[in-house]
Amino acid sequence: MNFKNLREYLSWLYYQYLLITGIYVLEPWEKSIFNSILFSAIAMVIYTSYVFVPIHVRLALEFFSKIIGSQPESTVALMN
């Protein structure tokens, strides 16, 4: 497919999206329901990952560094 500009390319992509999901055959109000549900779900996924992923990563790092870092000390303690 040859496209003259970005707009045409984007409209073709949207058409493919309509065809593959099958919402091409739906009525406009059903299309908007589907789109809003899908996009809000995606938005939520992105938002939650933005909010929670850094915290989880930090906690995980702390946890693992504690295990790796504290192990020699504790064995020494046991020996005594």
Binding site: I20, T21, G22, I23, V25, L26, E30, F34
Partner: peptide, 16 residues
Amino acid sequence: VLTYMGYGILTIFGYL
């Protein structure tokens, strides 16, 4: 897989 997904979406709207 995509075909089944399409039918799935259309079925949900059918039930609606």
